[in-house]
Write a protein that binds this DNA or RNA. Structure first.
Lengths: 227, 227
DNA sequence: CGGGGTCTTGAATATCGTCAATCGGCGTGG
DNA sequence: CCACGCCGATTGACGATATTCAAGACCCCG
């Protein structure tokens, strides 16, 4: 265990400074308009770190993001994957309680926290949106915890179904993340993830076109596994 | 596994109807005043169930509450324990996503969801409170997920430290919940919980005065275990 | 064609779960 | 007051699932 890659963190402020700074109007929370700027993060680039000031909120335009926490000994828990359309990084406290990195090259819309907050103060509609976004994250987190008490096969099944629903590709699911990311999300090791996928493949529940390209041959069987 | 006790659910509406209905003014969210009525729940009584309408929000006055989700085969995940002072049951959606039961005889302050919402619509201060309560739950849930990737000993250590901090008794911790509740919270079996406690006791990290009455002899050692 | 990272596979081990028996506290009733 | 019975907790022996350690395969990119 513990062969985690640490990458050069490129602070957001640097990027923001270079990018024309928040003059673009774009939809951030559903159809509510707040200021924002699009920024591109390279593969494995840090978007924000645990403990940093939560000065911005984010929305994935393209690519994908992993959010995670690390224990002192290096064990990592991936708390969520964010895909195009997903909003993340909203905090009610000053500091981020988790870290976020781009999984692959990722375009992200960034808005000042203070802008969003001041709008929310006068517009209860926006305040409600802000809150329901957090509540939705809470639900996801609770379901994630529910995942972590299941067997390896059940966790993988749930993961595949979730990804299939969110990535809705053309006949197959194209996973952006590595086995290590999946393992850390599911609370397993990469070996167990790999073995379980092989096993599902041998039972022709799924088909592995490539390691990250998967066909769900029998989704209902996955659903049964989903307990 | 699966010897879960199901108890007769006493719906809140019955209780509320009997109790004079929300004319009492009392602090619910910090120092914000909203309507509320105190209701007592017996040991193992259901406060609300997953899927039920989330028409009320709750605050523990005395006693203790477990919130949980169940899988189709009966495995139960306890998502949180609520102790005196804790607010719970806030939902942004119409329905509760989890269930809640009184662990022992528990007095609870109940407020109409609609009252709280309508206040929040006009008072951005209250809206902010509502949101930060949800955000705090989210943090707890994420830390809970972090627990579930640790070893049995680490989970128990973290649990004991958390309870000690929240229950702050006189030299010892008096746990309101059963081993089954603890096991379902930590994603372990009662046997493993019991064995681990015995183990910690043998190393004189803790002392078991009674099965639910525990002295933390060496909290710093527990902290080290906390990874 | 080569090399590095990612992924898969195998064998041995460890941790936790399962099954089962016993203990212990507590309330009830004889 | 003590005995009984019940429920929760503990303990033991065994087994299963996931981890660890190790080797090798695959694949993309230079």
């Amino acid at each position: 265990m513990i062969t985690r890659t640490r990458t050069t963190p490129s602070t957001l402020d640097q990027c923001a400074a270079k990018s024309g700074v928040f003059t673009v109007q774009a939809p951030l929370f559903d159809n509510v308009q707040v200021g924002g700027a699009a920024i591109t993060f390279e593969r494995n680039a840090e978007i924000f770190g645990e403990g940093e000031n939560a000065d911005y909120v984010y929305k994935v335009l393209s690519g994908s993001v992993r959010a995670y926490k690390v224990l002192s000994d290096g064990r990592r828990q991936v708390t969520a994957f964010y895909l195009p359309g997903d909003v993340f990084g909203i905090e009610s406290e000053l500091e981020h309680s988790i870290s976020a990195e781009a999984i692959d090259r990722t375009a992200i819309l960034v808005a000042r926290r203070s802008s969003v907050f001041s709008i929310a103060d006068s517009d209860s509609e926006v305040a409600r949106h802000l809150w329901s976004a957090t509540a939705e994250e809470l639900r996801r987190s609770q379901n994630h915890a529910l995942l972590l008490i299941k067997t390896a096969k059940e966790r993988i099944a749930a993961f595949l179904l979730d990804m299939a629903a969110r990535l809705a590709g053309k006949g197959f699911v194209e996973l952006p993340m590595s086995r290590q990311d999946i393992a850390d999300y599911l609370g397993l090791t990469i070996e167990t993830v790999s073995r379980t996928l092989t096993q599902l493949s041998e039972g022709s529940t799924i088909q592995l076109l490539a390691s990250r390209r998967i066909v769900l041959r029998n989704p209902s069987r996955l659903n049964e596994l989903n307990a």
